[in-house]
Structures are given as structure tokens and as C-alpha cells.
Amino acid sequence: MIQVEQDDTVLVVTVHETRLDAESAMAFLQDATDAVKTRPRVVFDLSAVGFMDSTGIGALVGVTQSMETGGGVAVFGLTPAVEMVFTLLRMDMLFAIAPDRTSALAQVRDA
């Protein structure tokens, strides 16, 4: 459900899940937490995620809270429905929201 790759000093987590909701959130939380545990800089590619509910948001926040501190988190590839939820829940207070991979990587590298 997730694919992980290292891009220089940043870990890129691509979420291969069309819906991040009650059904998929726990598995995502587990897999992604294991992947980011010792990393301070992480970028999430959410372009495949067409829908995210409160459980999905909780899982994403949970994952970022298990990261090594002192780095940064960015997300990119927000689909319209996900962007709406992110805006409503003011997720920009928690991570950088970038239009594409390049700028997401840049934001996190500078952090």
C-alpha cells in the first residue's frame, strides 16, 4: 500500500491507496510508521489518494508524530477532495503542502 524510496537525505513515501479511510488507515499507520521511524525528513506523495476521512487524517498525523524530530514533513499531489479536508483541518500548520515533488523535496531539505 506504500512505496518508500530515499531521495538524497529525504524519504519519499508514495501512498498507493485510493481511499485512506477507516478500512485502510490502520494498515497505513503501521506500515508508514515503520518506514519513517528513524527519519527526520519525509515527503508524502498523496496523488493516488482520492478520498481521506477523519481516520485517514488521524493516521497521517500519527505517522508524522513517530518521526525523528528536527527535520520536516511535506505532502504533495493533493486531489481536490483531500485538499478540501486539509484546508478545513488546517493541516498546513503541521506540514508543508507543496504543488509537486520537486518543491516538496526542496521545502523539507531546507527545514
Binding site: S54, I57, G58, V61, Q65, T87, L88, L89, R90, M93, L94
Partner: peptide
């Protein structure tokens, strides 16, 4: 203006 949910993160404004 939207806002962060409750109980997700401490010290939220």
C-alpha cells in the same frame, strides 16, 4: 477559517 481538530496535537493555536 477552518481549524485544527481537537486531541490530535498539543499546543495548537
Amino acid at each position: 477559517g477552518g481549524g485544527f481538530p481537537v486531541g490530535l496535537m498539543a499546543r495548537t493555536h
